[in-house]
Nucleic acid binder design. Sequence first.
DNA 1: CCTCGCTGAGAGATCGATCTCTCATCCACG
DNA 2: CGTGGATGAGAGATCGATCTCTCAGCGAGG
Lengths: 333, 333
Amino acid sequence: MPRPTILDVAKAAGVSRATAARVLAGATNVDPAMASAVVREAARLGYETNFAARVLRGGRAGAIGLVIAFNELGSLNGTFFTAVLKGAAKGLSAGEVQPVLLPADHEDLDRIPRFLRSGALDGAIVVLQHEITHLVERLADPPVPIAWVGRPRSDLGASSIVIDSDNYGGGRLAARALIEAGRRRIGIITGPPDMEQARERSRGWTDELAQHGIEPGPIVHGDFTLDSGTAAMARLLQRAPDLDGVFASSDLMAAGAVRVLHAAGRRVPQDVSLVGFDDVLIASTNDPPLTTVRQPLEEMGRAAADTLLAAIRGQSVEGMQLLPTSLVRRESL
Amino acid sequence: MPRPTILDVAKAAGVSRATAARVLAGATNVDPAMASAVVREAARLGYETNFAARVLRGGRAGAIGLVIAFNELGSLNGTFFTAVLKGAAKGLSAGEVQPVLLPADHEDLDRIPRFLRSGALDGAIVVLQHEITHLVERLADPPVPIAWVGRPRSDLGASSIVIDSDNYGGGRLAARALIEAGRRRIGIITGPPDMEQARERSRGWTDELAQHGIEPGPIVHGDFTLDSGTAAMARLLQRAPDLDGVFASSDLMAAGAVRVLHAAGRRVPQDVSLVGFDDVLIASTNDPPLTTVRQPLEEMGRAAADTLLAAIRGQSVEGMQLLPTSLVRRESL
DNA sequence: CCTCGCTGAGAGATCGATCTCTCATCCACG
DNA sequence: CGTGGATGAGAGATCGATCTCTCAGCGAGG
């Protein structure tokens, strides 16, 4: 059975196309009798505005994309994305927009840009993750408004929307907390150097140490995953067996680090203090629970959605929004 | 800058609309010189077929939806969905189709059906989860082909596509394994009674016990989550303190059950044997690792995608596909 | 030399919703 | 009683891709 069109509804209600369209668009200057007939017939026939026709005519698609790295969807790392998604979904629901998750396959990076260029969506929120940093370049001249969650390294146009947390300040918070706990031989497990967020956290950490006249300890790189955290911690211990504090640039890496420290016979926090970053689920369920720098992930998602919708509606919006980070004290420090 | 249309490409290449369309559609009966000019100009202008126009004209949208329960996206339960998604995504990539995840908000159940009725997608894969069982009724007369992963309780039309694992057989496998391990006082933690899959697992379990002349132990319900598993196990112990075997209808519930058993001073598997269901990540990472009934989740996702694409292409397909379950022996039995 | 058949390419029509323009009707006021 | 303004509703045009129909041009065979 073919989908009913607005013509079917109009015919059934005994009015013209235009009148039916007017009613369904919510116009008020229509005869009440006609209007109710249209509404009734539309419901009876199960009519729904044809997506393609509406978009083609220049209207809103009523859907926006949420681009995420496919591979990270399954890992525990997903909790990072989930929090952002939750906030974004709330904002989108309020705007009567269907959220559409687009898993970005890193083997075919051009797929998402192609889809966005096809005009199927009104806009997109891209959650920057390590695996899809290359998407940034391919979306440099976006066909629809894009809100970035996390700061891309390359410069985007002045009109672009970027929602990020204060990673630099967060790095300083972590360093200060370790210093105030009396730690002096502090190592750092950073994130991937191609991610601006990771670099900002390191920069804050370095600056805070310098301000207190403390020599930075060894620096090793991870990629935000738990496994990379264990590998990184092993290297840290090798290079500085006497360290008494570690700042891990993600909670997952911190959790990995704890395992290595325990295996090496170090107690956390008595022998080595540890500060993570993100404040995702694992931070509170870990043994010991992690002291960490909290990113307001859900608020970031919400801000991205709200800003994007405003931009789509043609309103002028604040291009760059930095949300504050804060220290959450648990037992690893 | 407005998106270039096929008319822009045709003009730039010095040919007509029709010729440009022919080239881009892959027709062979076009002058090679013209064809290469069209291809060159399309690339230079960054042309991408307008989604709305193509769909409106009656073509394929080139995208299919994957409907999932929004709230389960964040929980560990997500690994269930992730495995299905992974398989489905592979099948869809092979068919040059963009997978689009639609989070189903249980507060607005009509949203997904509305979106599907709008014609934006060629079809959908619905992964049945407890929270969205009500979606089944609302999609009884689907506007596009739908492949169900998991068996809906209500009867769907004869033409519908259902991909499920052999839950009944899996229930029998679990019961037989417990019996062969010498267990005789066996309780069960079932899934929600409104899910056909959960009922099938119970049915298999009951039948297998009966066949061996063993009286079924106490029955309690959970909702597949870890927390519900702990609550259910507590009730089981209360009702049958002497039980020596438990079949949990999901790995998450089994993991929850282990915690309660340990807290009650029972050793697993020495005092109480435990068999889970699903074989998701937690089954292997749990302490002790869980003996469980494996569902071929990734294969199910792949089958759903392949079958759906075939149906969209108008091929006749096998409506109901039951994939075999198998017992994975680890240390909880 | 004329005509038939084939290849290749352009013009027109179509999909469904919606915006604009036009027009009919009615009431009120001069 | 006639005209202006307001209100409501229909016809036409539009968005972009693509399918069908039509037609020009050319080579070969009668």
